[in-house]
């Protein structure tokens, strides 16, 4: 490949493509990450577009929220599909980001100089779960109210910051109108902003670390890897569209805070392992309420998972085993809770 000749390119896009043609990724891991990143980017784009569309009709008050979502599904053209896409996109995004983190752990892709990419990736996966969870609260169905109450009580168990967090999230001690505005702010403002910081860090990292010298075992990012990514994205789009068309998400009836009871509700699959732990635990552990212990442990565990490369600078086997065991525990807990 001849070195890029910027002066000869009149259009900025062509210039970028030429520069990318000089960037190479390995045929194995490099291509896998490009493909996973492409699918994640497609899903994020779907979430962003459908999210903005849904926000056009959403009314964040406890009295109107459920009705406004129903209005979208019933009255607005393509409303059912847009809501369905937003839902399935979010579920798929969690799965894809989770798979990416697992793959990175398997390949020890957190080794220097990739620590920043690992931290950003784990953070993105956690943010995707947080987005899905806050999103499930927005329709203010019976289930949303129970989840809001439960999750804020759990957050309040965290040492030091707990009660503050609960107050910040709910805007009161019980779910109310303010809670919905705050949850919407988290869902459509704070969390996407944090996610874009992570994406920016990943992009910077990729730009800084990608090898520029072709070898027999590498592919140029453009057009070789990019075309493969585009083809995979098209296939994923087909699957997502089919899923959204055929399986509309459930929407519970509008809820009254005072009457919300958790009886008969199942937790969302991505938080099932936390729920499983909480219900299996004895009332007290190490002399403290078990909820407090477990919530603190989960928070610390996730933070440790994200920051793990900082503690394990030599990328030892033991460190990898620890990470894989943690991930296997989450996956195993999820499967067990779903089968339960």
């Amino acid at each position: 490949m001849e070195p890029p000749d910027e002066a000869a390119d009149p259009t900025p896009i062509r210039a970028l493509l030429r520069r990318l043609a000089g960037v190479h990724v390995s045929r194995g891991d490099g291509l896998t990450f490009v493909l996973l990143a492409a699918v994640a980017m497609l899903l994020m784009a779907v979430e962003a577009v459908t999210g903005v569309l849904l926000a056009l009709y959403y009314r964040p008050t406890t009295a109107d929220a459920n009705d406004s979502v129903r209005f979208v599904v019933t009255e607005v053209e393509y409303g059912g599909l847009v809501r369905s896409l937003h839902y399935w996109g979010a579920q798929s995004l969690i799965a894809v980001l989770g798979a990416t983190v697992a793959w990175a752990a398997l390949r020890r892709a957190y080794r220097a100089p990739h620590a920043l990419a690992w931290i950003s990736g784990v953070a993105l996966a956690v943010l995707a779960v947080a987005e899905a969870f806050t999103g499930s609260l927005l329709p203010w169905s019976h289930r949303s109210v129970v989840d809001a109450q439960l999750s804020s009580s759990l957050a309040a168990q965290l040492p030091l910051v707990g009660p503050l967090l609960r107050g910040l999230m709910l805007g009161g001690s019980q779910p109310n109108d303010l809670s919905l505005v705050r949850i919407l702010g988290l869902h459509a403002g704070v969390l996407p902003m944090l996610a874009s910081i992570c994406i920016g860090a990943l992009a910077l990292h990729a730009a800084g670390c990608a090898p520029r010298h072709p070898s027999a075992a590498s592919l140029s990012l453009s057009p070789h890897a990019a075309l493969r990514a585009a083809a995979l994205a098209a296939v994923v789009a087909i699957a997502l569209l089919a899923l959204s068309s055929l399986l509309p998400p459930h929407l519970g009836a509008s809820a009254e805070v005072a009457r919300a009871s958790a009886a008969g509700l199942r937790p969302s699959w991505y938080l099932a392992f936390v729920h499983q732990m909480l219900s299996a635990a004895p009332p007290r552990m190490i002399g403290l309420p078990s909820a407090r212990v477990l919530v603190t442990a989960v928070a610390l565990g996730v933070a440790a998972l994200a920051l793990f490369p900082l503690f394990d600078r030599r990328a030892s086997r033991a460190g990898q085993v620890a990470v894989l065991v943690a991930l296997a525990a989450i996956v195993g807990g999820t499967i067990r809770a779903l089968l339960h």
Partner: peptide
């Protein structure tokens, strides 16, 4: 196109 159609409010009183 569907996105534009979606964004166009349906022909009935404003929600709310």
């Amino acid at each position: 196109l569907p996105a534009v159609r979606f964004a166009t409010p349906p022909a009935q009183p404003t929600p709310g």
